[in-house]
């Protein structure tokens, strides 16, 4: 009879299976199950898939159903929730984004299999509650082997510190078609202040639009910002009328503030559409004409 060896996920799954078995029977059942597994694996390491198939095909009822449920392979009332099934309401915070990051570490061929498995584990952890960031993190800690674990955790750390629900809500409001994209990007920028890469990749995933397409758009239109902006935002008009009306005077004032301690970003733009009041600047979303602007700038 072939020696039983484990793949990491197989061993984890088996441990979980054993946990689900009532304690009194555990010692007795363990060797039996390992025997069956060894036969199934036929010399190769037993994967979690092997374990699951054993449960499904080799065990008698009612043990089978109990264990399937315990391993969260199926929800009592139906199928395992799938990340594809757009039921984004079961995810809270950044959990869905994190889950996707986790899956992306899995080689593509195995991704579908893993998706179900991992969801199962998360589902079990959540015990009927919506999935949280903690659920996902603990799953990574518990069942993902190195070096994937470190790499995934590192990526989690790099996640933007904005609330991903902003993106969910925006997309829910505007829909996922390409003609909604501009609305979505404008809205996200309004909320976060700029467009973090993480937000763009989230939009890309959710709307199924290539990240490169989104990047193309974001860099084409001048109103999108890819970097955090200062607390105050000054847009100095360099349009025809303002150019003629000599904004030099104003420029000096602006220069002073921007180089000073007040966290201010300066952007030179074309016509702000207020040419008959030239020269004008926009400060934090409101347009000021020359004199007004000086007062405002100095108060920053």
């Amino acid at each position: 009879m072939a020696e039983l060896t484990w793949s990491p996920d197989g061993e984890k799954m088996f441990e979980k299976l054993m946990e689900a078995v009532p304690e009194a029977m555990r010692e007795m059942l363990k060797p039996k199950l390992m025997e069956i597994l060894a036969a199934r694996a036929a010399g190769k390491p037993a994967t979690s898939d092997t374990v699951v198939r054993m449960v499904r095909e080799d065990l008698p009822e009612p043990q089978k159903s109990v264990l399937i449920q315990a391993l969260s392979l199926e929800k009592p009332g139906g199928k395992v929730p799938s990340a594809n099934s757009d039921s984004s309401d079961q995810w809270t915070g950044k959990s869905q984004t994190m889950f996707k990051i986790m899956l992306n570490e899995v080689p593509e061929a195995m991704r579908e299999v893993f998706r179900e498995k991992l969801l199962g584990v998360i589902c079990q952890k959540a015990q009927g509650n919506p999935f949280s960031e903690d659920h996902v993190i603990s799953v990574v800690h518990e069942i993902v082997p190195e070096p994937f674990k470190s790499s995934i955790l590192k990526k989690f750390n790099e996640l933007g510190d904005f609330d991903p629900e902003i993106i969910d809500k925006t997309i829910a409001r505007h829909g996922t078609t390409q003609d909604s994209l501009m609305y979505i990007l404008h809205d996200i920028q309004d909320k976060i202040g700029y467009l973090p890469v993480e937000a763009l990749s989230a939009v890309s995933n959710r709307c199924d639009i290539n990240l490169s397409t989104i990047y193309n758009i974001v860099t084409f239109y001048k109103s999108f910002k890819l970097h955090p902006q200062g607390k105050h935002h000054i847009k100095q008009c360099c349009g025809t009328s303002c150019h003629l009306k000599d904004t030099n005077n104003l420029s000096q004032e602006i220069e002073k503030v921007v180089s000073g301690p007040s966290d201010t970003t300066l952007e030179k733009t074309l016509c702000l559409g207020c040419c008959d009041c030239a020269p004008v600047v926009e400060i934090d979303g409101r347009i000021y004409n020359g004199e007004e602007a000086k007062v405002k700038i100095n108060s920053l």
Partner: peptide
């Protein structure tokens, strides 16, 4: 529809692309 701050988007075919969510 809110634009994105490009002069060329005023040109009709560019504007149509812009409404469609393209560059």
């Amino acid at each position: 529809k809110e634009g994105g701050g490009r002069f060329v988007c005023g040109e009709e075919t560019a504007l149509i692309s812009c409404i469609e969510g393209k560059i």
